[in-house]
Design a binder for these strands. Structure first.
Lengths: 215, 215
DNA sequence: AACCACATGATTGGATCCAATTTCAACCCT
DNA sequence: AGGGTTGAAATTGGATCCAATCATGTGGTT
């Protein structure tokens, strides 16, 4: 199963996360198969996986699409993150060593040097997921990864719209998270993380145009 | 894809939830295929789905197994439930009508009449999942369903061990949840639910034998 | 007797083929 | 001209077949 299926799944995941595939886009089995020089079989298996991850919608006899999320759905998914990510950092922090924390500082330095939308999304994602990298409970870390993946498109649209004017808030929050982690204070870190997510969720709520139908 | 794949997935899910397949058990593609009168193909696709759901572990070229969870993993999954289920009831409650709530009363009446382990697990599961049935955000409700599914085996072992002596606590908690829901007080309901899960989690922590290796 | 090499059977992985369903467009009827 | 209908092309669903990999047991060697 796995080698070809994983290749295809990774390819499609990257395409969706990178924005090459957006909400509502159709994914034809044959296209993907040819594109990767494989048969349709691993493509079908990969689509099943991605459907279970929520990155793909699979309608019987009709094919696969990238799902379109409503503002309310994304709002709830951010609320899920507010609940889960503090738990994840509690699990993760004891397992992270100093070098991991210094990597966080590096990433935040890069973020503050300024980057385009794509660059920021990459760095921000790596920053937060590294924060949870020490979490050894599969179900928790994969759930969080999936929430990030499924909302990535809307985060991109939001970053594009909101521009750099409120960037200092993000930076301050990230610095506070890092500091709490160096202090090995997972309660504090969790609070800052939840606040970070909550603020973003509320700002997102002011931009319904992100969820408008595509032209 | 879907019709045969769904049939197989449902069959395997039921087998795992019902206890016919336990942690560590191997799942051979051919066996399942013959058992359901299908080819191996839909079986493979179903296994991919279940792997993404966490109900199956899929090792390349080695086959599929029901994963074995450690006590710590189950503990974290219960903590996830403590965080997510109050959110789910907040989303769900406004969508539930009186008849749903009366169905909760019915289920609790049945629970209090006493049932064997299997019967209680079924009723308890239906009770709680009905509580969240109004939640219209896929990612939230499927995440909760998966947490229930993955931990079902250990819940069964726990119920079997702990016996009926503390049953009155469960009943009291359920009644309080129902009352809060009739009052349309989702904050109260969420608190009772979180407490219910937390108490179970802690009692589970006193029974490490549930997670011991199988003979 | 213990251990390694090898071969054989069992099981999974991948591709091709055929059937079933959907989609879409041309066409006919009113 | 508009709307519904029928047909063909495109696409997905499922089965069989072959290749690759893993597990197991046998035999030989030290």
């Amino acid at each position: 199963m796995t080698v070809a299926t994983q290749r295809v799944a990774t390819h499609l995941r990257d395409a969706i996360l990178g924005g090459a595939l957006g909400p509502g886009d159709r994914v034809r089995q044959e296209d993907v198969a040819q594109q990767l020089g494989a048969s349709r079989l691993p493509v079908r298996e990969a689509l099943q996986m991605l459907a279970a991850e929520g990155l793909i919608e699979n309608e019987p006899n009709k094919g696969a699409r990238v799902p379109r999320l409503s503002m309310h759905e994304v709002d709830v998914m951010y609320r899920m993150r507010e609940q889960l990510e503090p738990l994840a950092v509690t699990e993760s922090l004891p397992q992270l060593d100093e070098s991991d924390l210094y990597r966080l500082v590096e990433l935040q330095d890069e973020i503050e040097q300024g980057a385009d939308v794509h660059g920021f999304l990459e760095l921000d994602r790596e920053f937060h997921l590294l924060t949870y990298a020490g979490c050894r409970t599969e179900q928790l870390s994969t759930t969080i990864h999936r929430l990030w993946n499924s909302t990535q498109h809307y985060r991109r649209a939001f970053v594009r719209i909101s521009g750099p004017s409120r960037m200092w808030v993000v930076n301050a929050e990230h610095r506070l998270i890092i500091d709490a982690m160096f202090r090995r204070d997972e309660v504090d870190a969790g609070r800052f993380i939840a606040g970070h997510i909550r603020r973003t969720r509320i700002e997102l709520g002011h931009h319904p145009e992100v969820f408008g139908a595509k032209p």
